[in-house]
């Protein structure tokens, strides 16, 4: 699926819409950055509640395309600025990690 489809799928709102035309092939859900670093697949969507700048650094290093911040956690300005610089998207949603992952999983595995 395309990054741009995430907004509707997750009832989300783009904090920074980066790489909208990119293809997403997998998802990964975790709030532990070392876990993300070690195990998140490339070209994936990261589902997390860690709304801070270091998450963007990890995502960039791990080759993640877009971050979905759950439970409407507020995204600080320096995090958005870092995402712009890295060319990553950040979407926030009111859904929690479980609900977000469920919708993503269904959608990705329907393909």
């Amino acid at each position: 699926m395309k990054v741009s489809e995430l907004e509707a799928l997750l009832d989300g709102r783009w904090v920074h819409a980066g790489g909208r035309e990119q293809e997403v092939s997998a998802g990964f859900t975790s709030d532990l950055l070392s876990d993300v670093m070690a195990n998140a697949p490339e070209n994936s969507v990261l589902v997390t509640i860690q709304a801070h700048k270091n998450t963007v650094a990890v995502a960039g290093l791990a080759g993640i395309v877009t971050l979905v911040i759950c439970s409407n956690r507020p995204v600080p300005d320096d995090m958005r600025a870092a995402a712009e610089q890295e060319g990553l998207g950040i979407l926030t949603t009111a859904l929690n990690q479980f609900e977000t992952s469920g919708r993503l999983y269904r959608r990705l595995h329907a393909e």
């Binding site: 532990l32 950055l33 070392s34 801070h52 270091n54």
Partner: peptide
């Protein structure tokens, strides 16, 4: 709380 220090590093 920042998502670090899980003992995986």
């Amino acid at each position: 709380s920042l998502g670090f220090g899980a003992g995986m590093g």
